[in-house]
Amino acid sequence: MAASRGPGGFTIDQVAKAASLSRRTVFNHFGTFEALLVSACEDVLLEINDRILDRLERSLSALGNDPDRETATLDCVCGSVQEADLNRSGFGRDFRLWL
């Protein structure tokens, strides 16, 4: 909802209906509308973090005993972050709508 309407473009009642929950259940779990938004942002950031770490792990394991391991490690870190780039992954558009 936030991606299509922005953070002010929907209500807790709409979230509850979309999730087939009662308004009370949503408020019991999140406490406030702001807490709901924070939770959604955290979920997005966790997914991005997982993408970065997965790529980094794959890249580093492929290095083996490369004599330029330090340089190659930095390249892996940069490549991993670029691969999970918020703008290129589509998250940037969605994430900025939350802010």
Rank of each mutant, 00 (worst) to 15 (best):
I12C: 04
R96D: 10
M1H: 08
A72P: 00
L37Q: 04
I48L: 15
L97V: 10
S22K: 10
T73L: 07
D43S: 15
A62T: 01
S4L: 14
I12T: 10
G92E: 09
L99G: 12
E83K: 13
S61P: 06
S80T: 03
A72H: 05
G8Y: 08
R55N: 06
A18S: 06
R58C: 05
L60A: 08
S59W: 04
N65V: 00
V38K: 07
A72G: 07
E47C: 08
D68Q: 12
F91W: 10
R58A: 12
A35Y: 07
N87T: 11
D94E: 14
V15R: 03
A19E: 06
T73M: 04
A35V: 00
D85V: 10
V44K: 14
F91A: 13
S4P: 06
E47Q: 01
D75W: 07
R55M: 02
R58Y: 06
A19N: 13
S59C: 14
A3M: 09
A19F: 04
F95N: 00
R24H: 13
V15M: 05
L37F: 06
C76P: 00
V81S: 10
D13V: 04
Q14M: 01
A19Y: 10
D66S: 02
L74R: 12
S22Q: 05
I52H: 10
A35Q: 05
L60T: 08
I48N: 06
E83W: 15
D43Y: 09
E70I: 03
D66R: 03
E42W: 01
L99M: 14
V81P: 15
D94R: 15
Q14K: 08
D43C: 08
D50M: 11
S20G: 04
R55S: 03
R96M: 07
T71S: 14
L56Y: 15
L99N: 13
S89T: 11
T32S: 08
F33V: 03
V81K: 04
L86D: 02
A84C: 05
R23A: 04
F27G: 04
A40N: 03
W98F: 10
G64K: 01
T11M: 02
G64R: 01
R5Y: 07
S4E: 13
R93D: 14
V38A: 14
S20E: 06
P7A: 14
E70A: 06
F10T: 01
K17Y: 13
D43I: 00
A16L: 02
D43M: 03
N28W: 05
F95M: 03
